[in-house]
Simulated scan of single mutants.
Amino acid sequence: MHAALRGIVFGTVTLSLALTTAACGSADQADGKDSGKDKKGPLTIGLLLPENQTARYERFDKPLLEKKIKELAGKDTRILYSNAKQDANLQQQQAETMVTKKVDALIVDAVDAKSIASSVKKADDADIPVVAYDRLAEGPIKAYTSVDNPRVGKIQATSLLKELGDKAEDGKIVMMNGSVTDPNAKMYKEGAHSVLDGKVKVGKEYDTKEWKPENANGNMKGALSSLGKKNIVGVYSANDGMAGGIITALKGAGFTKDDMPPVTGQDAELNAVQRILSDEQFMSVYKPYVPETSAAAEFAVALAKGEKLDDIATSKTDSSSQKDIPTKIVTPLPLVKGDIKKYVGKSGFFTAKEICTSKFKKACDEAGIK
């Protein structure tokens, strides 16, 4: 691991989101109860993913989820899949189509955690259990799995501060947070601020609409105009897609890889891994997709069969509309240039052939990737 990141130790984070004083539901499985289902014949599992701009969903999440579901429930299991392409209204329609088709369980990675609640309620009314995947949706969710989201923000911020060193006192950083409709974005931001506040000046901070790289690019251009190129010493970017848009703006302002301020990221996307190898992007956060997708598949199949979740869940989570949701949380890992070699070729990461195209061959050779 890069020396700047050694010694990062975070305590266990207990997830508890936005408790309200209003009466809240409780997931049936939290008390070890089952739904009483006795499913005969092949299962049908619905899968709704939020967007396709972030490469991870089609490249890793979807195939890994499908593989694990069929491994658990049999090769004859039907998997109905839809991608919302960052459209919350479209995702609601897709969810309601799944209800109409009477799937046995539904896995949802919500575009908008609040607006999907009505669709989750319709599924619940139809006796279709819903698993919240990666983002905690509102409504009567029966199970939830994600990464340790506050830790993601802490990893990014700690990495950035260590890379800045004394430069943290010499200028300002720009914070490019994610979309306000994504509950994870709030946790990344809070985690980052818990590390950065009082250690570095934040010159500009943005909540980036729909996580879109072009919106991050526009925001970064505005920050450069407002703060001045010489005053920006680093950029906190909540994910890799936005980091790409930010780096394009920085290049347009005259920065080269030799004087590029460190830019963070998340998701370990292929383009980001290549940017890290070529010293354009400083770091990303690698989220092990196999344990996260496996947990979602295990929850969905167990719920579809009416089985208990006690052996799958490792904790419980509260949303503003639901208490004691059976939960499994996965630990994210920092990814800097020196870390890439150890992940190459592993499940949920890229092969050397994918990374080391002709443009990046020299950088791969220097990093010992073959």
Score class of each variant (00 low, 15 high):
residue 243 A to C: 03
residue 203 G to D: 12
residue 317 T to D: 06
residue 246 I to H: 05
residue 254 G to Q: 08
residue 271 N to M: 03
residue 168 A to R: 14
residue 129 P to D: 03
residue 107 I to M: 12
residue 122 K to N: 13
residue 37 K to G: 00
residue 158 T to G: 00
residue 252 G to C: 00
residue 129 P to Y: 12
residue 284 S to Y: 07
residue 319 S to T: 13
residue 65 L to F: 14
residue 180 V to Q: 10
residue 123 A to T: 10
residue 16 S to Q: 10
residue 140 P to R: 05
residue 177 N to E: 10
residue 243 A to F: 02
residue 92 Q to T: 12
residue 259 D to H: 14
residue 364 C to K: 07
residue 71 E to M: 02
residue 200 V to W: 07
residue 319 S to P: 09
residue 273 V to S: 05
residue 332 P to F: 12
residue 360 F to V: 00
residue 255 F to V: 01
residue 361 K to S: 10
residue 75 K to H: 05
residue 184 N to H: 10
residue 6 R to D: 08
residue 298 E to M: 06
residue 113 A to Q: 07
residue 184 N to V: 11
residue 231 N to C: 04
residue 127 D to A: 01
residue 283 M to R: 11
residue 288 P to N: 09
residue 87 D to I: 04
residue 43 L to S: 07
residue 99 V to F: 09
residue 29 Q to Y: 13
residue 21 T to C: 01
residue 143 A to T: 06
residue 280 E to C: 00
residue 52 N to C: 04
residue 149 N to K: 14
residue 226 S to F: 02
residue 106 L to W: 13
residue 317 T to F: 11
residue 106 L to E: 03
residue 174 V to G: 10
residue 168 A to G: 02
residue 205 E to L: 03
residue 63 P to A: 06
residue 232 I to R: 06
residue 29 Q to W: 09
residue 92 Q to Y: 15
residue 147 V to P: 00
residue 195 V to H: 06
residue 158 T to Y: 10
residue 137 A to R: 05
residue 93 Q to F: 12
residue 306 G to A: 00
residue 37 K to I: 05
residue 272 A to S: 15
residue 263 V to M: 05
residue 343 Y to C: 03
residue 96 E to G: 01
residue 320 S to N: 09
residue 218 G to L: 04
residue 43 L to Y: 15
residue 332 P to L: 08
residue 248 T to P: 01
residue 215 N to M: 10
residue 43 L to V: 08
residue 346 K to N: 06
residue 68 K to W: 13
residue 71 E to G: 00
residue 350 F to W: 15
residue 134 D to W: 10
residue 297 A to M: 14
residue 105 A to I: 08
residue 229 K to S: 05
residue 233 V to P: 07
residue 19 L to A: 08
residue 78 R to W: 10
residue 78 R to T: 11
residue 312 I to E: 02
residue 313 A to C: 01
residue 143 A to P: 10
residue 284 S to K: 10
